[in-house]
Amino acid sequence: MRSALIAEWTKQRTTPGAGWLLLITVASTVGLGAAVCAVATDQYDTVRLALSGVYLGQAPVAVLGVLAASGEYSSGLIRVTVAAMPGRSVVLAAKAVVIAVEVAVVASLALLVSVLVASQVGLSVAGEPVLRAGAGSAVYLVLVALLSLGVAVVVRDSAAAIGAVLGLLYLPPILTAMVTDPGLHRLLERAAPISGGLGVLTAWSGGFLVFGVLLFRSRDV
């Protein structure tokens, strides 16, 4: 597992794509957060406003998670990877750990800057609530990255996987707004990755990762 982790980490850091996506994650998270804070006042949920950049920042995180797997399918590199590391679960686990750590570090940084920006424009964001919400948002982004990895392993195609993940993240809020039936409305809200809470998102990510591992182990590559 150790050699697989080192190898996957080298893969991530030796292409420019991942670095750019992480940079875009920081820029979009901080940027949207700052824009929202600039027009907000203290009468709203200020912690939530300060961290609202996550709504935009999750998109590059999703792309990062998808490309970590599906990029190898499009080039055929996946065969080189599996020939070098025949333990397929180990390969997937190593990929998951590498992107989880990457996203955790970068998301924490982006959210910290977001909070600093919010306090600069005069919103009252301090203390334990903001710490808890910030940590939750970082975990949210890590789970989005893992969900994306799982989906990419299942569908093996970058465009399809990115479409599926972004659809899963952004469509439910739109659908929820359109649905009038209160029962269905509540179901959508509770089952959607973005609004169902970290537990629901963990189920989505875990489910896709497990499904991905099972397929990856049994399929010809």
């Binding site: 893969k11 030796t14 292409t15 420019p16 794509g17 990029g71 080039s75 055929g76 590199l77 065969r79 080189v80 020939a83």
Partner: peptide, 10 residues
């Protein structure tokens, strides 16, 4: 097996 199985930017 396939010499083109590379990441082009690496």
């Amino acid at each position: 097996l396939d010499a083109s199985a590379l990441h082009p930017a690496r």
